[in-house]
Simulated scan of single mutants.
Amino acid sequence: MSDSVLVWIAIAVFLFWAMGAYNRLVRLRSQGLVAFAALEGSFKQYVSLVKENIPHTAEVHDGDDAGHGHDNSSAAWAGLAAAAEQFNASLKVAHAHPLNGPTTSALKTAFETLCLSWSRLQHLPPDLAGSALPATLQSQWEHIAFQTEIARTEFNRMVANYNDAISQFPALLLAWMFGFKPAQPI
């Protein structure tokens, strides 16, 4: 009789541990989703900033006049607009699956492309009309970049916590059984 009591106690301890470990994995995944929502809000500000400030010449640029200062600016603005559209598309996909590794990897690449396009525009030499980027626009970008970096750091921290939890034995057995997949930092 004492052996069966010990077996039932062991089963109860295992079940309570399994429920606790599963709840921890769910909680960590939820924290990652909340962190992504904050990051997504910052990312959307980039898209809005670019869309609201695209000069009309960038929207109708046909690329035939490459080599002229104004045309280089138009081409750079068109490149930034295209990068913003691609980033926005990646952001929409990531919204549906924020902790999916390939999805967040694509979002990270699109974000890096957007930043590279911005840098290209930022480093164009000024022409007779002045700098390609007004100082107020640069200031807005820097403000968004600061907010984004905070949100991105928090998201990446949550992803690291989540990934650590699903890779630890014996919780990794629950992660495998219930389909918890590793997430990708941005």
Rank of each mutant, 00 (worst) to 15 (best):
L15C: 12
L25I: 10
Q86M: 05
V7K: 11
L172P: 00
M158L: 01
A37F: 09
F14V: 14
A145T: 12
N156F: 08
I11L: 10
I166Y: 05
G20Q: 06
D64G: 04
I186W: 07
E59Y: 01
T153L: 13
R27G: 15
L114K: 06
T148W: 13
H97N: 11
A129Y: 01
Q45P: 03
Q122W: 02
T104I: 10
E142I: 13
A135H: 05
T148R: 14
L116V: 09
R157M: 07
S2A: 03
S48H: 06
S4W: 07
G63K: 07
K44E: 07
L28W: 10
Q45S: 10
L174H: 01
A10Q: 03
H61I: 00
L33S: 11
A10Y: 06
E52S: 08
V7Y: 05
F87V: 02
A58D: 09
H143G: 15
S30E: 15
A160D: 12
I9Q: 04
A12W: 01
I11P: 00
A10D: 03
H68E: 03
H70S: 02
F155D: 14
A18H: 05
H70A: 06
L174R: 00
Y162H: 07
L91A: 04
S42R: 07
L91Q: 08
N100Y: 08
H97A: 08
D71C: 00
S73R: 12
D62C: 03
M177L: 06
S30P: 07
A129F: 03
L15N: 07
D127Q: 02
H68S: 05
L99G: 09
T103H: 05
T57A: 13
R152G: 12
G20D: 11
L133C: 07
D127E: 04
S42K: 12
G130Q: 00
L124Q: 10
A18I: 03
A75V: 07
S167T: 09
Q184C: 04
F155W: 14
A175M: 03
A110S: 15
E142N: 15
K51P: 00
F14T: 13
S48W: 09
A151R: 03
A35P: 10
Q147N: 14
W17C: 08
V93I: 08
A10S: 11
H68F: 01
A35C: 13
I150F: 09
A35N: 12
N88D: 11
A78L: 06
T148V: 11
G69C: 06
G69H: 04
A37N: 13
S2Q: 01
L33M: 13
S167L: 02
T148Q: 14
D65E: 01
A58R: 05
H56G: 07
E85N: 02
Q184Y: 04
